[in-house]
Write a protein that binds this DNA or RNA. Structure first.
Lengths: 157, 157
DNA sequence: CCTTGACCTCAACTTAACTTGAGGAATTAC
DNA sequence: GTAATTCCTCAAGTTAAGTTGAGGTCAAGG
């Protein structure tokens, strides 16, 4: 006898179904569960039963990962979704907007770096000592530790 | 007696000096050597001796990593630099241009994804079934495996 | 000289994000 | 009803990119 829940309206699905719908590996979905990205119910036999909304949830995870966000980042974002009910469009909009902001930021950083590179090629600074990329005081500090004197080779000594 | 080579013109430096110049950890520089990103000479005592041009080399490694390139990607790019002589400005320009291209590509992909997200929020597709993000036939295939039906939840079944 | 700090090698540990495998139970298909 | 799937848990392995530590050597200053 199939799950009574499943019979109700085909509202839930097995991990295999979800894997097929999202393109994720079954093992990855289980792994995401250990990381708190999904929390499926169980049927009487102990098998995981997912909601349709979990498809969107995991799709969001994939998109966010493509953008370079860590699972922890994503978990935090997803944590703002309502726990009790299936997320509404508004719920998703809120999260998406948030990620759009971060995405915007990344695009900006990359664009700036590209422009720096472009400038450097034009001015020959890749072998000179005064390029903006060499200057630790400018925006490039944002690129994290170790990038202080990005193209190094300054006159010290 | 200090290294005779070093005496010549301060042309070479120790791993500690290079670490300081690039902002990298000494251990990271040694690690990069095992990955083929730098191949320092050795002095008579067996200590590594780097060229000034290695500062640029490692700076390039850092920049490329910020852009999301793997060490293997970077190794391949650096492999196009001349083996015998110190790379010239032209050599670096060539590599930089190449990376600029890849950077451009990434910016494009991110921008497109941002625009999709934006459109989705506007049209409510994050909870609908016909969004461009849902369509596996469009440019999103480029985002790699598993992203086939990016926002999933299509009518199949 | 001779001490102290910088280096050397090699092995092992670390984190993120998963995958693989073993051993066993639940579902589904015929 | 039974054979083939699919699923379950838990432990261990995997790759990338390094870091940490042990045990020992080299170099530079006083």
């Amino acid at each position: 006898m199939p799950d009574s829940i499943a019979v109700v309206a085909n509202q839930v699905m097995s991990i295999g179904d979800l894997a097929e719908r999202t393109g994720l590996a079954v093992s990855a979905i289980r792994f995401y569960e250990t990381k708190g990205l999904v929390t499926p119910a169980r049927n009487t036999g102990g098998q995981r039963r997912y909601l349709r909304s979990d498809i969107r949830r995991l799709s969001f995870v994939q998109i966010a990962q493509q953008l370079g966000f860590s699972i922890e980042d994503i978990r935090t974002a997803l944590a703002t979704l309502p726990a009790g009910r299936t997320p509404t469009q508004k719920d998703w909009e809120k999260i998406s907007r948030n990620f759009q902001g971060k995405l915007e930021e990344r695009i900006l950083r990359m664009t700036r770096l590209r422009d720096y590179l472009e400038g450097c090629i034009g001015c020959g600074c890749l072998s000179m000592k005064k390029c903006a990329l060499v200057n630790p005081a400018d925006g490039l500090k944002k690129f994290g530790p170790g990038a202080r004197a990005v193209l190094g080779d300054r006159l010290k000594r």
